[in-house]
């Protein structure tokens, strides 16, 4: 890619790449009875920022709204509420950037490497599609696509005219990365992008991603359920539970000094490298509550070891416990009335 195609840095380095405010998406589904309409609160008021050039990890168990958040960011699923600010410009605002521009600046790599490639198109045509849509003539687009393939480590001579079913999972995921980068985005959303790959290939693709990030000055939103991988790649981490952010902070703080009981449980569920150190009791029991009918107050209280009466009454706010480290838990919020609040607050200070 030439520098001319690269999109300029508008707001300067201090301006966050992405500001997401109160993003919400509820899915209406047909209820059990004919009259009732149930609402799945997939993403329920999510607010966060992504700084330029950083990697923001998003973790949480299945169904907590990680992927929906990613789709909302690209307007693949339109949000019900909330705003997205891309480098200081509001998306969808007459004075800001259009959804089309947003989609060019933000690209996404999906988890299922096979489903995300058209089985009827050659690798090169798949990568070139986006370029042609954005006005490049067919031959130029194909040449550029070849260059993108080379950049992700696939020699165009061998791979350009192949079909997706002829490639391995790792190779297909490289193609998906090439396709996303062909749009010369500034932000790349990696939605479980390496989760389906086996470990050795996963490491190769991760290293490729880190290398590309340096070279193309990209900003990553790295969504994964794999805590070890998130720790390896991320600068900051967001922990989600049932459509809400429960904890956000620098990777070191989250992994070494987790405050939210859910984050602690999540980290305690990791397997140890030491075979003698086995996890006998599960850190959490039961399934996450039904997102159609989440518990009142704090959504984690039904599985929380330190839940008290106050947790059922009020929803905890994201409170600062440490430098750039916010936690949504009454036990960490001094004014909440939770008996542990003062104690934990002191610990944080």
């Amino acid at each position: 890619m030439t520098e001319a195609i690269r999109q300029p840095d508008i707001g300067g380095p201090a301006q966050p790449m992405l500001i997401v405010r109160d993003l919400q998406r509820h899915f209406v589904i047909r209820g059990q009875t004919r009259r009732r309409k149930d609402v799945v609160r997939a993403v329920d008021g999510v607010t966060f920022e992504v700084a330029k050039g950083e990697t923001l990890g998003v973790v949480g168990e299945s169904g907590c709204g990680k992927s929906t958040t990613a789709r909302l960011l690209m307007h693949l699923t339109p949000p019900d509420r909330g705003e997205i600010i891309l480098d200081g410009e509001k998306v969808g605002d007459p004075r800001g950037v259009s959804v089309r521009d947003l989609r060019r600046s933000v690209q996404m790599v999906f988890q299922d490497s096979f489903a995300s490639l058209n089985p009827r198109l050659t690798i090169c045509d798949s990568v070139a599609f986006g370029l042609r849509v954005n006005g490049q003539p067919a031959t130029t687009a194909r040449l550029n696509a070849d260059a993108m393939l080379r950049m992700v480590g696939l020699t165009p001579e061998t791979f350009s005219d192949r079909y997706p079913h002829e490639l391995s999972g790792g190779q297909r995921q490289r193609v998906n990365i090439a396709r996303a980068l062909a749009m010369s985005p500034r932000v790349l959303i990696l939605d479980e992008a390496v989760s389906a790959l086996d470990k050795s290939v996963e490491a190769q693709v991760l290293n490729l991603l880190l290398e590309l990030k340096e070279r193309l000055t990209l900003t990553y939103l790295f969504i994964s359920h794999d805590l070890a991988v998130v720790r390896y790649v991320s600068d900051r981490v967001v922990v989600m539970y049932l459509g809400k952010i429960v904890e956000v902070g620098p990777v070191g703080a989250i992994y070494d000094r987790p405050h939210h009981p859910y984050t602690r449980a999540l980290l305690a569920s990791r397997l140890s490298m030491n075979p003698k150190q086995r996890i006998s009791a599960p850190p959490l029991t039961g399934d996450p509550p039904n997102p159609i009918d989440p518990p009142s107050g704090c959504r984690f209280r039904t599985r929380c070891p330190i839940a008290e009466a106050v947790c059922a009454l009020a929803e905890p706010r994201l409170a600062r416990v440490d430098a750039a480290h916010d936690v949504a838990c009454h036990a960490c919020d001094a004014g909440s009335g939770h008996t542990l609040a003062r104690l934990t607050g002191m610990e944080g200070a």
Binding site: R71, M74, L76, R100, R103, R104, Q107, M108, F110, D112, A115, S116, L117, N118, S126, F129, G130, V133, N134, N176, R179, A180, M183
Partner: peptide, 14 residues
Amino acid sequence: AQDFVDAARATGAS
């Protein structure tokens, strides 16, 4: 419902 259609939408294609 396939991801490749979403990927195509993400390029801004009509």
